[in-house]
Structures are given as C-alpha cells and as structure tokens.
C-alpha cells in the first residue's frame, strides 16, 4: 500500500530554521550565511570586516569547520562573540547547529551575525539556517567556471563576492566570462570584486551598511 506524502526531506531542518529566524528578528540582528569553497578567503574577509567596523557595530560570528578551532581563534582575536562549530564528517552547517551555537551568544547585543559556513559550494545552499541572506563567495584562483558549475548557489545568493582580484594577472581567469555566466543565472544579484589581502573590501562594507539599515527599517515597520 503506497502512502503519498510530498514533503520536503529537509522539513525538520526548515522548522528549526524558522525558529532561528524568529529569534534573529526579535533580537534585531542581521544574519549573513557566507558560503564559499575552501580557502576562498571567508575568514580573512570576516577578520578585515571586524577590523573596519570595530566600535561602530557589534558583530558576532559562528564559524563552521570540519575540524580544528583555528578559524575561531583567528576571529576571536578581533571579536568577543565567536563560536566555533566543528562538524566532524559534516560538509555543511544545519539549522540545529546554528540554534545551539547561537544560544551561546547574547543576540540582543549584536547588530550583525556572520555565519561562516563549511568550505563547500554545494550542500550549504540547501540548508536554511534562518539567515536573512546567503552570500556566495568565489576567488579568482579557483577558475572562472565555478559560477557556472554551481547554479543553485547563484540562484539563492543575495550577493556574490569575487575575491583575490590581486591574483588576476597570475592566473587564467577570464573575468568577462565569469560575469557572463553569473548574469545567465541571476540577472539581478550584485557581484563585488574584492582583494581582502590588500584591504580592498569597500564595496562589501557599503553593501553591508545598506543591508543593515534596510533590515532595521523593515523590522521597525513590522
């Protein structure tokens, strides 16, 4: 006897994500899920962001890695609200891990909460964490075909970052081709070029400031 269901397999994850989202909204904290391949510069970007925004906004970071607390330690030098999540065999963060980790922070004190996802362009896309936005991050040293090869990430991202622009002269990366691939998949998503290593992150900081203000605006209205 067949029993029809039609229910998302990740329904339980999505239910917890909904609780997270409500908690984030109540605490009026803007939550960014940062997704990129291993080594594209996620932690470096957050370090630089913490440096720039010190004293202006209160930032928390949940950082996911399969093993070690190295990224957590790097970030803790610049930020008092860091929780390292070790996923073991897990290649992504799920809503329950975020729920548990966020419980260790005082969300009410925070303006922005960054979630550095496990370095992986595939499954972090499928797991709703309760974030406001997902940001997809690439770097030129990975090759110019990475946007085209990961359409799901392109479709769900509210913002795309292309890092390590300083390496452009040294690698085979066709910038025009990359832009074209991005536009094929998502005409509207902003794409910002950064060189975190050289402190070139202004477009990102501007975007963040705008988003934070928009978010506060909407939560006040709601």
């Amino acid at each position: 006897m067949k029993v029809p269901v039609v229910e998302n397999v990740l329904k339980l994850n999505d239910e917890i994500a909904r609780l997270n989202r409500r908690a984030f909204q109540e605490a009026e904290v803007f939550v960014v899920d940062l997704i990129g391949s291993p080594g594209c510069g996620k932690t470096a970007l957050l370090e630089a962001t913490l440096e720039h925004l010190r004293g202006t906004v209160e930032i928390g970071v949940l950082v996911g890695d399969p093993a070690t607390s190295r990224d957590g330690q790097r970030l803790a030098r610049r930020c008092a609200h860091v929780v390292q999540i070790n996923t073991g065999n897990g290649c992504h963060l799920d809503a329950n891990q975020i729920r548990q980790a966020a419980a260790r922070l005082d969300l009410n004190r925070l303006d922005i909460l960054f979630i550095e996802n496990v370095g992986n362009l595939i499954c972090p896309v499928s797991f709703d964490l309760g974030q406001h936005v997902k940001v997809g991050m690439f770097s030129v040293s990975e090759g110019d075909d990475k946007a085209a090869k990961h359409p799901h990430l392109l479709l769900v991202s509210s913002l795309l970052l292309l890092n390590k622009m300083d390496l452009l002269p040294h690698v085979n990366f066709d910038l025009e081709h990359f832009h074209q691939d991005v536009r094929c998949l998502n005409a509207a998503v902003p794409l910002l070029e950064l060189s975190v290593k050289h402190g070139q992150i202004e477009p990102w900081l501007n975007w963040l400031t705008c988003q934070g203000q928009l978010q506060q605006g909407t939560s006040r209205v709601a």
Binding site: M1, K2, V3, P4, V5, E7, V9
Partner: peptide
Amino acid sequence: LDLLFYEV
C-alpha cells in the same frame, strides 16, 4: 528534494 511516498 521531496519525500513523495512510502509503501507499507
């Protein structure tokens, strides 16, 4: 990514 049915 949907569960469509289960058969018992």
